[in-house]
């Protein structure tokens, strides 16, 4: 068994185009339905990131990067933590303890609802950002070992890589 140069998979591409919107939609469902069913921010973040990763695997990293640039993913990583901690800061500014959501709305139950919503959103955004960043990081890091082990004749190897100007 040996590795082979990239081939385009028509069937896979069509299927991915169909599937990715559903994955992201399902991720959003898990994110905002976590109060009622299983799931929450973490799972939702992973599922949304999985949708984008599938897109990137099938259509190439370059296209995934144009859908969600790495800088966005990096911003999302910190934005989520900011949302979470910011919720805590807001509750403190409103005169309660850190992350005591009772004061966020006119009555405690609504306040809790908004607080949990914001916090789960923060978790989801961070996890999405981290997963996408990890994928970008792993897929774009170049290495020489791989080419040595690929077991293809050297001319194929040479032609399958593009020297890229630094």
């Amino acid at each position: 068994m040996r590795r082979y140069p990239r081939q385009s998979h028509r069937v896979l591409q069509v299927m991915t185009r169909l599937l990715v919107p559903f994955m992201i939609l399902f991720g959003l469902y898990v994110q905002f339905h976590g109060d009622y069913g299983p799931g929450g921010g973490f799972q939702a973040g992973v599922i949304i990131a999985a949708g984008l990763i599938l897109y990137g695997l099938v259509f190439g990293i370059q296209r995934a990067r144009s859908v969600c640039p790495p800088s966005w993913a990096r911003v999302m990583m910190s934005l989520g933590v900011l949302i979470y901690a910011g919720t805590g800061a807001v509750t403190m500014l409103l005169g309660a303890h850190l992350l005591d959501y009772d004061v966020l709305a006119h009555d405690p139950l609504h306040g809790q609802h908004w607080g949990i919503f914001a916090v789960e959103l923060g978790v989801g955004v961070t996890v999405t950002g981290v997963m996408i960043s990890l994928f970008y990081g792993f897929s774009s890091a170049r290495n020489s070992i791989d080419r040595k082990n690929s077991g293809l004749p050297s001319d194929v190897e040479a032609s399958s890589t593009v020297e890229h100007p630094q």
Partner: peptide
């Protein structure tokens, strides 16, 4: 707290500090 899923209310409200810590760990 409200949510019918008690896991969510424990994670996000009763143990909000914990989850904040976990988010920071992921970050």
């Amino acid at each position: 707290v409200g949510p019918p899923n008690i896991v969510t209310s424990v994670l996000a409200s009763y143990r909000g500090y914990d989850t904040l810590g976990e988010t920071v760990v992921v970050f």
